[in-house]
Simulated scan of single mutants.
Amino acid sequence: MTQQSILLDGLPVPFEEGQTIMDAAMAAEIFIPHLCHHPEFKPQGSCKLCTVKASGRYVSACTMPARDGMEVENNSPDLNDKRRTMLQMLFVEGNHFCPSCEQSGNCMLQALAYELEMLSPHFNQFFPSRPLDASHPQVLLDFNRCILCELCVRASRDVDGKHVFSLSGRGITKHLIVNAESGRLADTDFSLTDKAAHVCPVGVILEKRKGFAVPIGQRRYDVDPIGMQVERLAHRTTTEEEI
């Protein structure tokens, strides 16, 4: 049987039936920028950073099924410019101050900004007023950094079976909440051993009494750019302590 393949930036990339463009690219160790995609969860295409041009149409690589002979454009000036704009909007919609953040060097948002050569936020900062939740004995929640990727929502619902997190509101008012009458994480059955505790790509869910255990400069994306870590991203699991 002839191996099916797509043409990704002019390179033949094989795929198996049922795989998406993202699946095929990652199996071939070709990086497509993304934030909400995780190999353990069903894709939902919420961040749109993985937008590619397939047969002339803009589609999300994480949700678009690969088709034999499909021509896909990924690493182009046009697409990377659009991705930079999306990153700039994510930076200003939340409070992302990398030099003071515990996740600096381990943050996918920061790593993608470096990868795509985002030099400034460009837009005016929103500076949203979002609370911190330090009520839980093991975990601090910093809602200021949430990018609405829903990875913690999906992990808690689909893997942990606890439904600890959800999104509330619409449009610019959409935000992450804790499903407790009090709204406090301490009033849920959330645990540091939950899958949801280890999937945040930024710095919302932080283990207490652990910050800066690895010095800045020696962290995951300090050592190698995110674009060179495709194999790890393709096979990472939610048991990792740092995504």
Results as ranks from 00 to 15, higher is better:
L140R: 11
I30M: 11
P77R: 03
F212Y: 13
K210Y: 11
P65H: 02
D194K: 03
V223H: 06
L79D: 03
N75A: 14
K174A: 15
Q4F: 07
N124H: 12
K53E: 15
G94C: 10
P137K: 10
R157F: 08
H175M: 12
F31M: 07
M70G: 07
P12A: 08
F97T: 13
M228R: 14
S166K: 09
K174L: 10
H38K: 03
R219W: 06
D81M: 11
R232C: 00
R145K: 15
L185E: 04
P121A: 07
H198E: 05
I32D: 00
M89I: 15
Q3T: 14
P14D: 08
T173A: 15
H37W: 15
A155Q: 02
D133P: 02
A186Q: 09
G217T: 04
R154T: 05
G203E: 08
R145C: 09
R220D: 07
K174R: 15
N124W: 10
K174Y: 04
L112H: 02
T51A: 12
S168D: 13
P137W: 08
T238N: 13
L192H: 04
N95W: 10
E73W: 07
K82T: 05
G211N: 11
D78L: 14
R170C: 00
Q229E: 09
D81F: 12
D194Q: 05
P201G: 04
S182D: 03
R184F: 11
N144E: 12
E93N: 14
L176Y: 08
T20W: 00
C36K: 00
S120C: 08
V52N: 08
H34M: 07
I172V: 15
L90N: 09
A196G: 06
S46V: 13
F123H: 14
M64E: 14
R84W: 05
G69H: 10
M228E: 15
T63V: 10
G217F: 04
S104E: 11
V202A: 10
L79E: 04
T2Q: 12
V199F: 03
Q229W: 03
M118W: 01
M228W: 09
N95L: 13
P128R: 06
E181A: 13
E181I: 06
K162P: 01
A196V: 01
D187N: 11
D81R: 13
K195D: 10
G217W: 06
R170V: 11
A111Q: 02
